[in-house]
Simulated assay, not measured.
Amino acid sequence: MANQLHPQLSTKYPTLKYGLLLLPLMSSAVIAADKPLQESKPFRLNISQVSTQSAEVANGNTELQRDSLLLSAGMNIPLDQQWSVGFNVGYDRLNYDWRNISLTGPNNVSSLFGSDGQSWDHINRYRAGVSLNYRMDKRWSFSLAPQIQYAYADTASADQAQSYGVVASVMYALKSGNMIGFGVAYLNDIDEVRTVPYLAMRWQIDEHWALANPFQAGFSGPAGLELSYKFNPDWNIGFGSSRRTERFLIEDDDTVVETNEWVSYLRGGWQATSALSVNLYAGYYFDSEVEVTNQTALKIDNQGAVALDIGFKF
């Protein structure tokens, strides 16, 4: 459930970066500029497990079920009253369980497995990034976040699977304390260059309700929106949605698989202690498709997903 679960207005949660709840865990380009200058716990560690239902591919017998283990770590360091810098690294293990693969007939999915038809079972994804954040005054703040990623299947090698990019954002704080802004992600992904604009927001509607970005913009797609309700300092729920994109190398001749899908989810959050947070997600992937370089996209049936994210700050 793409990469990256996620920044909350009142408490910060990681990002579900894989598809729907994928906590990807990119650089904190959107929200970092709004953090307090003095961070009592500048280090964070997130561990997430994501699982989807089995879904039919190409309206045939072929089925795909996905499980992902997502790990990320980061820190944010204030340099002075205006400047701060952040660092983050991550590793994701994405397991693809293919069943009843159809290589002939009207529901042929052989294009998904490269020129030799060899199936791939898991993806390794390594991520790293930095963010430079500048608070010009009480109203305006800016962020610039370069990032790099390697994403490749067990049938390919890392040396040809590099992607890099930069996310830039500007945020404006209203007198109410709410923030709204705009960002652009320039991504030189594997065998493709993309420019993705997105809306950045942190809006406290009232004492309990808030609207904010649940995902970080980056290789996994735009930031999306989450509406959350805070019962008390320890418990909250949220509902969010976003468009997610995944690209990874399956053969060393620039043969790339790309998945695109909308993801919606319901999240329950528990702030167990000042250092420990737990988020449980129930989500749904829809309008999903998967394609290989220069091939016709194949539809993936809608599917449910669940995810558990545990975050530590210290």
Rank of each mutant, 00 (worst) to 15 (best):
G240C: 09
R194M: 09
L21H: 05
A33Q: 10
P14R: 12
L25S: 13
S48W: 06
P146H: 06
E207K: 13
V290P: 00
A173I: 06
T255N: 10
V57M: 13
D97P: 01
A2E: 09
T155D: 07
Q53E: 15
F219G: 10
L298F: 08
G105A: 00
D116V: 08
I310Y: 04
P222L: 11
N59P: 10
L64A: 07
G181E: 01
G117S: 07
E207P: 03
R247C: 02
V85I: 15
Q303V: 11
L308M: 11
F87R: 00
W203E: 03
G183D: 06
S51I: 08
K230W: 12
E261W: 11
Q82K: 15
G90F: 03
R243L: 15
G218Y: 06
S163I: 05
N61H: 04
T104F: 06
S102Y: 02
R202A: 11
D154Q: 10
P233V: 05
Q118V: 07
N59I: 05
W120D: 13
G224S: 07
P233F: 09
S115V: 05
R135T: 06
D301K: 15
M26D: 13
L199M: 07
E192K: 13
G117I: 02
A128H: 04
A32V: 00
S27V: 01
A29N: 12
G218P: 05
T255H: 05
G74K: 02
G105K: 02
L25H: 03
L37G: 07
W83S: 02
L187V: 11
S51R: 11
A161M: 05
S131A: 15
T245I: 14
S220C: 07
V263S: 15
E258N: 09
W235I: 11
R244E: 14
S110Y: 01
Y172L: 05
